[in-house]
Design a protein around this nucleic acid. Structure first.
Lengths: 148, 148
DNA sequence: ATTCATGCAAATCGTTTGCAACCCA
DNA sequence: TGGGTTGCAAACGATTTGCATGAAT
């Protein structure tokens, strides 16, 4: 059993969940497509290649659990459906997305310079920030290079 | 005809749209509930008080146009439906939202300290940022005051 | 008069849920 | 064995769309 599966099994057990072959495959697919921000439907497609009998509902249920366990995060990229990304242990809440309004590409970014802003918000509004979600809209490098 | 309606009429005409009583009422309702982040369904409710025959589809169609005209912005506050807020002329970069994870309140915030971050992103990734959307999650003042 | 907008109901579409059969622990 | 899990289909809920009627320019 691969490391990631063992870890998954432990995390599932903590919450009283079981390790099933479907859950294994879903996580494997997401890991094999890191940084791709797969949608539920896309995950379903890839999982079906390795486990053809799986139902869409199982994908939804599994993603809900993986999110609950903190293994993946649901992204909300202004589409009519959701996408998911693998959480890296190293990142806390310092991960933003660059969304190109021309080609639609989505890139993850590690910078985090929000601390001063959060301190200011806390001082001025008495609002204690413990997480944030930031999307930048603009034109990506490829699109501005290709515009001739 | 009130100022806001005249302005609406002009903006509609520019795009070949007509000024209808329904569109007037929708905008009036949103203006009367500034800072409340009304959902489509809530807007429907308020509009119906003043214009009982209106259909939900008209609300959806009107909000689409008001958004296109830049009069309102669709918000995405992690709910299964959308909310809208009135755009203030003074702000171009949209403001940020503080979302309390305890009571669910949503507050608009005007600070904008993202310029240095955006410059860094531009330099490092060649991505030209022209807008952003930021949500801060945490505990609002009321909730932390009331926790005893 | 022309063109666009409305109201209604039906249609979409992503997601959820009920349930009998099934499988992991 | 027993309780969580699955696949399937039906149910949901927000939003969209087709169409005949109605209103604005």
């Amino acid at each position: 059993m691969k490391d990631s599966t063992i870890k998954l099994k432990d995390q599932l057990k903590e919450k009283g969940y079981k390790l099933t072959s479907q859950r294994k495959v879903v996580l494997d697919v997401i890991m094999d497509h890191e940084n791709e921000h797969l949608s539920t439907e896309e995950i379903y497609g890839y999982v079906k290649e390795r486990h053809p009998e799986i139902g869409l509902a199982t994908i939804y249920r599994t993603l809900l659990i993986l999110d609950e366990l903190g293994i993946v995060s649901k992204l909300d990229l202004d589409e009519e459906f959701n996408r998911y990304e693998l959480n890296k242990d190293s990142e806390d809440h310092r991960h933003h997305h660059l969304i190109c309004t021309k080609c639609g590409s989505v890139t993850g970014v590690e910078e985090d310079l929000l601390d001063p802003l959060e301190q200011q918000i806390q001082k001025k509004y008495g609002f204690y920030v413990n997480n944030h979600r930031v999307k930048f809209y603009g034109i990506c490098k490829e699109c501005s290079d290709n515009k001739h």
